[in-house]
Design a protein around this nucleic acid. Sequence first.
DNA 1: CTTGAAAGCGCG
DNA 2: AAAGCGCGCTTTCAAG
Length: 580
Amino acid sequence: MSTGPSPVWCVVGRGTGGRTALVDLDAQGERIGSRELEPAQLADAVSRREAEHSPRWVWSDTPTWYARLLAAGVTVARCHDLRLIHVILRHSQLVRDAEEIRDATAWDAPLDLPLEDRTVGATLFDLDASSARRGGVPHDIDAALAELARQLAAIDAATAASRLRLLVAAESAGGLIAAELHAAGIPWDVAEHDRILTESLGPRPAPGHPPSKMVASASEVRAALGDPQLALDSPPRLLRALHRAEIDVESTSKWELTRYDHPAIEPLLRYKKQSRLLTANGWAWIDEWVHEGRYRPVYVPGGVVTGRWASSGGGALQIPRQLRPALRADEGWRLVSADVAQLEPRALAAMSADAAMATAGAGKDLYSGIVEAGIVASRQEAKVGVLGALYGGTTGDSGRVVPRLRQNFPDAMALVDGAAATGERGGTVSTWLGRSSPAPETAWTQAQTSAYLPDSAAGEQERARRSARDRGRFTRNFVVQGTAAEWALSWLAALRLALARFEPVAPAAGAHASGPVFARRAHLAFFLHDEVIVHAPAHQADAAATAIREAADAAGRLLFPGSPVDFPLDLTITERSPAK
DNA sequence: CTTGAAAGCGCG
DNA sequence: AAAGCGCGCTTTCAAG
């Protein structure tokens, strides 16, 4: 095969008789070759073709195929994830005249089982056992070819097809990155984690027993409330006990308790913090989630409607700042941590081409820039105001500041105000690259219609107005959060390709020697919305930092060509992640 | 007994 | 001072 032109796409799928099929397509999507292999031969074949042509690999679902390739030591540069892209295209307002892609099909199947459960199979690349059980997207080669053709047609026919193509590439790169992040894991210092737990809770107790410092906190609360039997973990009972002590709170939540001055409050808040740490990230968490010095969360690209990632398992996106010091580089390695300063408002400034907002943020802290422009008096006011603008705040401090922002940043505010108005009407909004918000439920639309009839009850009208405003706040935020997520994905994708060109080093001596091949050079280890951590051999740390900055610049240019808006990073090189 | 909602708190 | 967006996870508690 392949005496003709080099393949641009290479589609992978389940072939006949338990074999795996590879089909080569040219730039126009025309078939130029195909072959079938035994599943065990796939890794070698992919590796060879990646070296020769570096085609864009097309497959049903990245975790299903790529986890196995990674396990076999093979990485690829680019892919097209049919499941992820189907979700985008099916709802995107940019897609026209492509009714086929909007029909309900097996490609709508959600990613519903954790990664580990989906890679069960008698042999490598034996998809039958797992796919039959999970009822997910089709893995057959014919289904993949047909769906790819539908998707390419939909993209070609789209308005602003070039933006949609960026989104398709970024989303698919996210799939690869998520699988690699899982394979690499986060370097985790169990001894440091245990030290933090012991400091806060006391030494690890026997199973079924509460830690000593929690027992002490609870005793103080019970004494201060004069209720020696009180069960602190039951909010209704705790609330009644607080009332008996004349602490007149409506709930047992932290922010409400802090407003009262009573001897029970301090130990109670301490107890709540301890309890949270123990149940969410205590010793049981270590036992379950950390193995051989790595915490391996399952990342779920596209798991949030806005395009942000979700996670499943161990709460990867909610690691408390208190535990950040447990992220520690291997011996002789460094953590290169970077986060974008005020990503969402910058994304808004860029997509709305708001010159004043771009100037306020140029090269520095955006909130300070708003103060220096004389729009508000303090950084805190600027921050609360901007967040209010993004989230639709109308009360309190943000409600007071937003009108001033509307005056000074008219283009930015017009964009989010317009998105809110569209949402309130039941309309659909889209991100910069073309991910669209879900349409309202039929019940929502019906309630709106019926509330406008002359004989509707006052309560019904009020409920309908409130739910319209709720939806307006969602669509207002959707365009900003979603566009910021697109920027972040583009950043990661550019960074990943840059790091892939770093020289591999010999595996570190000691416990962490095993692991995926790409983890033998500077590699991504953690991602959280606007923050990335690269785990790098010490001598590659500076170059990795440069790559992170260059990737951020590249993402800005790619999404917003010619825009003056910049995306400055806070970047540190450390052995241990700072507590912040 | 299981299941689902709500409360509460962690992250951006 | 604690609102306005998006999540995941643990626990309690009531309903089936």
